[in-house]
Amino acid sequence: MTKEPNTFDGRRWHDMGGEAAGPVPTDQHDFSLWEKRVDALMILASSKGHFTVDGLRRVLEDMGPEAFETMTYYERWIASVNQNLIEAGVYSTAELAQRMSEVTKRGATYGEANR
C-alpha cells in the first residue's frame, strides 16, 4: 500500500496569522477562582526561575490544535505549567500522580477537594 506524499510545509497550527476564520466571538466570561490560581501559579513559578513563559508556550504549542479546540485556556495552562515543573525537577510524576488521586478522594466538587 502506498501512502500519499506528506504535504506538511513546516507551518505549525498555532502560527495562525493570515488564515481564514469566522467572525470574532463576543461572548465573555469572568475568571473563576481555580483559573485565577492557575494564572498565579504560572506567574510565581516562572518569576522564581523554574521555567519561562517561553517554556509555557512551547508545551502549549506541542499540545496541538485538538487541545486548543477542546480545552479551556486555563485547562491548557495547568497542563503546560505541570509539564514544565516536572521537566524542571520541582516534583516527580509519581508525586503528582499520588497527590491527584488523593485529591479525588476528598470530594466530588472543587470546593470539597480543595483542602
Binding site: 510545509d9 513546516g10 507551518r11 505549525r12 502560527d15 496569522g17 517561553d54 508556550r57 512551547r58 504549542e61
Partner: peptide
C-alpha cells in the same frame, strides 16, 4: 526558514 520547535517569527512574515 521553516524549522520545527518553538520560534517567535510568524510564518506569514
Amino acid at each position: 526558514d521553516m524549522p520545527p520547535g518553538h520560534v517567535r517569527t510568524p510564518a506569514y512574515l
